[in-house]
Design a protein around this nucleic acid. Structure first.
Lengths: 255, 255
DNA sequence: TGAAAAGTTTGACAATAATCAACAAGGAGG
DNA sequence: CCTCCTTGTTGATTATTGTCAAACTTTTCA
């Protein structure tokens, strides 16, 4: 009933200067005038409904997108039709950088819920970045951040047990919740257990079992999409690889 | 005995214009004059010996590197000291982009053999990219390519069996061999079975068993580091996810 | 409102790959 | 040239996680 209202609210054209996400997003480090120039090239299309595609694998690449509210999952598919989720993208995070290398998106990007986005035409962004070193550098930082995130998941898939993977996943969501100014202890997730399992390389049933396990030992409460973490430090220690590659304190790797 | 000679040969300062890798690397798309300007900022340090570190996790980030000859592995480590290899980098490929986001390298980069590299100070590269749109775009393409490569591995770790992973790994090496102008059927690998297992999230023993299995069925010959692929099409089909996200031909994902 | 669909949970069983252990084969260095 | 040490191979056993099946809950939509 209120969905019309929600659409119109989330569709309000908020300029970067007034956006609460500006410190996570492309404008970081720009002054008022530079931010205004960035604003000029950004489009703000109507929000995506749940399950709607932002783009599909094979579409020609023209823009990158920033999630303003809601969330988006990106996934690749194999020849045999299996899909592998490559990321969940929350407000302030960029989607579409996979398209830069060959001018074609390599992933599918699909909204997990009502999601509003900013569209940034990439050729215009590059033009602008040429005259705004700060913008150029922030773009590079954000691309590199994607690489780091992928490496973290690589570590999870390659070396961690089911329990550690889910712990690491939840800690990651907790951190991102905190980064956007919300509680690290309590948040809503927009993805299904199936999505989580797919992302972490585990069966749905395993995810479900781990959730019940975590609840049995009093680590957290998980009611559907609502997560309340009771013992965050313990969850962090379970996640183990929480501080990947932050130091070279490992004596074994000395040359 | 000839190692001194080898060092001096691989240490010859080849300008980008004369480098056989220019069509894979940063200079792609630049004209002669632009390439010369790029040349000016590139340093060519002495080659790395086997096992020598190019940089370590935690080092302050200043440069990215391009492998000129040889190969480099990058890996992260967990708190508990386990390492996860995040990539093997062959001639023409970039190393160090993980450092851009926080001005600190997040991985360790270690030579797998005698390896010569080009060093590109990143702040100077960004300066130059501001005035050379072609260079800027190529940098973006290469960063995006890294993302794609990571997504491919994500798919392997998340969805593929041991057999499929090793097949995909070998097909990938074959493709990269061909891209550099060498045979896709015959090449030398510089990493150990242990490294391959680490990278693919499998035990060494599993890798070894899969190699013997592939040889038993006449797919390839693997004598130590020398690989000869006999039936590349079959290996490709085993790899399955060889064409990740190249099409949206999967009817299940229609909205 | 009610029925169907989608998502979640739990249990029983099976299988893929890990671990443990031992040995073989190359390569480096005295 | 021979020995040591690293790397690779093979076998036996274990266990973590996947698969199949079924019940239950929530959401969707007519």
């Amino acid at each position: 009933m209120a969905s019309d209202k929600i659409i119109s609210i989330s569709n309000i054209k908020v300029a970067c200067g007034d956006c609460s996400l500006k410190s996570l997003c492309l404008p970081l480090g720009l002054n008022r005038e530079e931010m205004h120039r960035l604003d000029q090239i950004i489009k703000r299309p109507r929000p995506l409904q749940r399950e709607q595609f932002l783009y599909r694998a094979g579409d020609t690449f023209r823009s990158i997108y920033v999630v303003r509210s809601g969330s988006i999952k990106t996934y690749t598919t194999t020849k045999s039709g299996e899909q592998q989720i490559t990321g969940f993208h929350l407000p302030g995070e960029i989607v579409g950088l996979d398209g830069v290398s060959v001018d074609i998106y390599s992933c599918n990007a699909q909204a997990l819920e009502m999601t509003s986005i900013c569209q940034v035409p990439f050729n215009r962004l590059e033009e602008l970045a040429s005259s705004l070193p700060g913008l150029q550098h922030q773009l590079h930082r954000l691309m590199s951040k994607e690489l780091l995130a992928d490496h973290e998941v690589l570590l999870q898939l390659g070396k961690m047990s089911a329990e550690e993977r889910l712990a690491a996943f939840l800690v990651n969501l907790s951190n991102r919740s905190a980064q956007r100014g919300y509680s690290p202890h309590e948040f809503n997730i927009s993805m299904t257990r199936t999505d989580i399992g797919n992302y972490l390389g585990l069966a749905v049933e395993t995810i479900s079992r781990q959730f019940t396990h975590f609840q049995e030992v009093g680590l957290l409460e998980a009611a559907r999409k609502h997560i309340r973490i009771i013992d965050l430090p313990k969850l962090r220690s379970l996640a183990g690889g929480e501080a990947p590659c932050e130091s070279n304190s490992n004596p074994k790797v000395q040359a």
